[in-house]
Design a binder for these strands. Structure first.
Length: 678
RNA sequence: GGGGCUGUAGCUCAGUGGUUAGAGCAGGGGACUCAUAAUCCCUUGGUCGUCGGUUCAAGUCCGACCGGCCCUACCA
């Protein structure tokens, strides 16, 4: 019997669980249920990730304490998880005494190993809010190319990288005020000291090969940078014991939450933490998304190694969820919260659908509504459940035959696939497992068809034959239900009720059951009504719109999101404004720039022979052919800029955050090229 | 620019170098009526992205190119 500790990444206490999160928790839950079904000793550990600036900001905005916020979030998260049948053995919090203790222990080990160094860092400080600003909370003018309103760490326009302190006219996105540069002491962990160890460990089969390659090519080919793991207060988190006023960065204590949460489970179950985190006998499996791989594959093993904890046996890494081939989107309504899903649809559907899409590869997973409906309705209802529903009632009075009848080797075929299916589950190749199970299911209905129990029951002399046929069909169904049990615990339970047993072990699939009563058949799964999906998406959309327009003005209900994200710049004079020569221009030519990801090459006419060559970063939103002929507004006197593909002689004016959401400005009818805008 | 993944039927995908490349769904035709308008049978449909190479044999291995996705950046 293996002893296995399993974790999913800790969900951040900053927001509710949505269907994107569920990919990971369902993937993990299926794996854990599978291990338990195999008879292994397996515990599933998780917790809320509760520290960091974002939590403080939200608590502040809602006018309550951080503790209050995270308590409510934890409850909501656990309710959502439970709704999807995700069963944790312990669900803790990084803001727990247990977690704090392990933070101290691991920290002391890093100190003892002489891996901690101090360095003063110039960081922007929001005087109004009284906090240091993380890169993403600062925007300003790029110090290299002068583009305005750029993120705090790099420029979207010229790709330069810099520190937020180098920005010209920096603005805090929290308060809109101008932050000042302050120097603060930060603590760094020198993981480079474990370079050799990490180079070996990451390539030793613990990670999917794509991730191992990624780390090798991207991080381990050069000295690893020191990891900044402290933040000056105020910060919602744990204060560093030997560095008063400094707090551990949320990514230091988040993974330690795994251990803290395990400690809680140990306390509740009379177990020792050493047997789970410091034992060769225990496997540790982390399930995470590809976005957080380097925390789990570089820093985390470095911490564990230094502090003498077990290293992860395997890190299972999944991709992101897309809906209908596109990123989840609030405005399209595809950003569906777990609780919203549960209002409309059966969690089993999503469990099965994700299972058919998950493999051991790090790849994105698409939720396609039509595919979703068809998989549930034809695979689960049409093939699997149908087996029971079309035969159970014929033998509700007689029960199963006393002896398992000759079925032409069908049951043996079913039982024979068990180990192969189990291997696929073990490897995380759920899509393969589901495929194999459905191949079996495809053989079961023809058996029923060929033996036509509805004909047999018309002839009293064939009562035995009728009972036998149904015995076979129900045993095939039973085996399928066991194979599907990790994915569909609910179905396994209902199948168990029908058959009067607990389908709680994989081994049960190996031998048929006979000579027992059959309960009255009850519906086990409803078909999916596509309309419910539409309604769910529609409601998600509406709720998002309602949320986004929390500060309505007039009758328009426009959201304040945009203005908040990007506050109005410092005041200028009218002369300043007229330095910018805006002109109406007609796009007379538009070409793809195949090598460029964002750019379209435009020829703009200002009337007569006056033309400008402009590269515009609008490829993601506009096709060149749809642009030709239209009028736009351009900055005509911008200094030409040499780009890789040629010289750009101006800019066209557009709004929007980027991607598909770029909106060119057009003059009203009557404007002609060359006219000044002002 | 670099790295990774990927390209097989209308769609979603299988396919350890070895017969004539498969499944599910969708489409077409038929059957059945036990079952949640479920099921069963038959059937249409493919230059396996392109071009080279290795091999007795290539969807599969190698190289180049073309396309898609992801990550990342004057750094391999």
């Amino acid at each position: 019997m293996r002893q296995i500790l399993v974790t999913s990444a800790l969900p951040y206490a900053n927001g509710p669980i949505h269907i994107g999160h569920l990919v990971e928790y369902l993937q993990t839950d299926i794996w854990v249920r599978f291990q338990k079904l195999m008879g292994n000793r397996c515990i599933y550990i998780c917790a809320d990730d509760t520290h960091g600036t974002a939590i403080s900001l939200r608590a502040q905005k809602e006018g309550r304490s951080e503790e209050d916020l995270i308590a409510e979030m934890s409850e909501a998260h656990q309710r959502d998880f439970a709704g999807f049948g995700i069963e944790f053995d312990n669900y803790g919090s990084t803001n727990s005494e247990e977690s704090r203790q392990f933070c101290h222990e691991i920290w002391q080990s890093l100190r003892d190993a002489d891996m901690v160094v101090e360095q003063d860092i110039d960081q922007l400080f929001d005087v109004e809010k009284g906090v240091f600003l993380a890169d993403r909370f600062v925007r300003g003018t790029c110090p290299v190319c002068g583009s305005e309103d750029q993120p705090g760490d790099n420029c979207d326009k010229c790709n330069a990288t810099y520190s937020p302190a180098e920005l010209i006219n920096p603005v805090s996105t929290l308060s809109g005020s101008t932050p000042e540069v302050r120097s603060a002491k930060h603590l760094f962990v020198q993981i480079e000291k474990l370079h050799d160890f990490l180079a070996e460990w990451t390539q030793s089969g613990t990670l999917p090969s794509e991730s191992a390659n990624y780390l090798r090519n991207f991080f381990l080919n050069e000295p690893l940078r020191d990891w900044d793991i402290s933040r000056p207060g105020p910060y919602f988190g744990f204060e560093i014991p030997d560095s008063p006023g400094n707090y551990w960065y949320v990514w230091f204590d988040a993974p330690i939450g795994y251990i803290g949460s395990t400690q809680q489970w140990c306390d509740a179950n009379g177990e020792k933490i050493e047997d789970w985190w410091k034992s060769d006998q225990t496997e540790i499996h982390h399930f995470i998304g590809k976005d957080i791989q380097y925390f789990h594959t570089l820093f985390w093993p470095a911490m564990l190694k230094t502090a003498g904890f077990s290293l992860p046996t395997k890190v299972h890494i999944h991709g992101f969820l897309t809906v209908d081939g596109e990123k989840m989107s609030k405005s399209r309504g595809t950003f569906v919260q777990a609780s919203k899903y549960l209002e409309h649809l059966d969690p089993s559907y999503l469990r099965y659908y994700y299972a058919t899409r998950l493999s051991s590869k790090v790849e994105d997973l698409d939720l396609n509504p039509e595919e979703f409906v068809s998989k549930i309705n034809s695979d689960l209802v049409g093939k699997v459940v149908n087996l029971a529903s079309r035969t159970a009632k014929f033998i509700k009075d007689t029960g199963l035959s006393a002896e398992y009848p000759d079925d032409g080797g069908l049951f043996e075929t079913f039982a024979g696939r068990g180990s192969e299916i189990a291997e696929a589950y073990e490897a995380g190749d759920y899509s393969k497992a589901m495929r194999m199970i459905m191949e079996l299911a495809d053989q079961a209905n023809p058996y029923v068809e060929n033996n036509a129990p509805w004909e047999l029951r018309k002839d009293p002399d064939k009562a035995q034959e009728l009972q036998d046929v149904c015995t076979v069909a129900l045993n095939l169904f039973r085996t399928l239900a066991i194979y599907l049990a990790p994915v569909l615990p609910d179905l396994a339970e209902k199948a168990g009720e029908l058959l009067g047993e607990d389908l709680n072990s994989w081994e049960l699939a190996g031998a048929p059951v006979t000579g027992r009563p059959i309960a009255k058949f009850k519906h086990m799964m409803q078909r999916v009504d596509p309309k419910r999906i539409e309604v769910m998406i529609e409601e998600s959309k509406e709720e998002n719109e309602a949320e986004a327009s929390s500060a309505p003005t007039g009758d328009w209900d426009d959201s304040d999101e945009a203005i908040k994200a990007d506050p109005i710049a410092d005041e200028i004079s009218i002369d300043d404004f007229f330095k910018t020569d805006l002109r109406v221009a007609r796009i007379v030519g538009a070409n793809e720039v195949p090598e460029a990801r964002k750019l379209v090459q435009l020829t703009l006419s200002l009337g007569g022979d006056e033309t400008r060559n402009v590269f515009a970063g609008i490829k993601s939103a506009y096709q060149p052919e749809e642009l030709v002929g239209r009028l736009v507004v351009m900055v005509a006197n911008l200094a030409p800029r040499k780009m890789k593909f040629g010289v750009s002689e101006g800019m066209i004016v557009a709004s929007g955050p980027g991607g598909k959401d770029i909106f060119l400005l057009s003059p009203d009818d009557g404007a002609v090229p060359g006219q000044r805008v002002g």
